[in-house]
């Protein structure tokens, strides 16, 4: 029950801030949309007309996933940097629930609250381009959940780094390009990329949404890689975060006062 209250509290905070600072939220969505229009126009103007439809579909999936990855992975880093500067990090660190649980619930809250925005962006992109993708919820749900797990693992790594390293801002700026690499680069370039976080998930989502593959159509091996990645990156991220918390406690970084 305590877990649920913790989750509810964090969902509420996320929702309140999105709603209260609506102009910020709208500006963020507009930026997303304008960049997307730029990509769309690029494909239309300079792209090969024979592959234009495929490219646009490809961009829609990759871009929406990139947006999600930035929100989940990068945002937690910024949040912690702000909390450390503001002085609220030490309050979170003093919760008997444990800071990792608060971070986990924050990451989940971010996904849940932003999910509706992601769906809206997806449909807006499809409407703009006239390219209607296959939204097979049964096939997409497990892929989505498992991919989010690896994203949360990455989020934990970034959160841990943000607690320990004061000068992490520069890395957080670069991170969005790393995330772009993970969401835009196809597995076909090099099969080993499938073992990187997010990559396999986006690949399978493309397979469902663009090629129309059903859940049963997804290969067992592909699905196992996705499961392995989800567990591996989640556990690694979690262990890394706990390690960073211990380092921060040893160095006195949890309280900046």
């Amino acid at each position: 029950m305590k877990w649920l209250n913790l989750l509810k509290g964090n969902i509420r905070k996320e929702y309140i801030e999105l709603k209260r600072y609506l102009p910020n939220t709208i500006a963020m969505l507009l930026t997303f949309y304008i960049i997307f229009l730029g990509m769309f126009a690029g494909i239309q103007i300079v792209g090969d007309p024979n592959t234009a439809d495929a490219n646009i579909q490809y961009v829609i999936v990759n871009y929406v996933f990139w947006f999600l990855a930035i929100i989940v992975v990068q945002d937690i880093g910024w949040q912690l940097q702000i909390e450390a500067t503001q002085g609220t990090l030490e309050q979170l660190s003093m919760s008997p629930m444990g800071i990792w649980k608060i971070m986990l619930m924050r990451l989940i809250s971010t996904v849940l609250v932003n999910f509706l925005i992601i769906i809206a962006l997806l449909y807006l992109s499809m409407l703009t381009t006239g390219q209607w993708l296959n939204v097979d919820v049964v096939a997409l749900a497990p892929i989505f959940i498992l991919t989010i797990m690896s994203m949360i693992g990455l989020g934990f790594i970034i959160a841990g780094m943000s607690i320990v390293l004061k000068q992490v801002q520069a890395f957080l700026q670069i991170l969005q390009f790393i995330l772009a690499g993970l969401t835009f680069v196809p597995v076909s370039v090099a099969p080993v990329l499938a073992f990187l976080p997010i990559v396999k998930g986006v690949d399978l989502v493309r397979s469902v949404m663009i090629d129309g593959t059903s859940l049963l159509g997804i290969g067992f091996g592909d699905f196992m890689i996705l499961v392995f990645n989800a567990i591996f990156y989640f556990v690694i991220g979690f262990i890394f975060f706990l390690y960073c918390e211990r380092v921060a406690m040893k160095k006195g970084l949890l309280a900046h006062y």
């Binding site: 509810k8 509290g9 964090n10 509420r12 905070k13 309140i16 801030e17 600072y21 309050q91 629930m97």
Partner: peptide, 18 residues
């Protein structure tokens, strides 16, 4: 960026209370 009440309720939530 939260109100007085929201602060009280949020921190209570972080300790596992509804």
């Amino acid at each position: 960026r939260l109100t007085v009440r929201e602060n009280l309720e949020y921190f209570a939530g972080n300790r596992g209370a509804s």
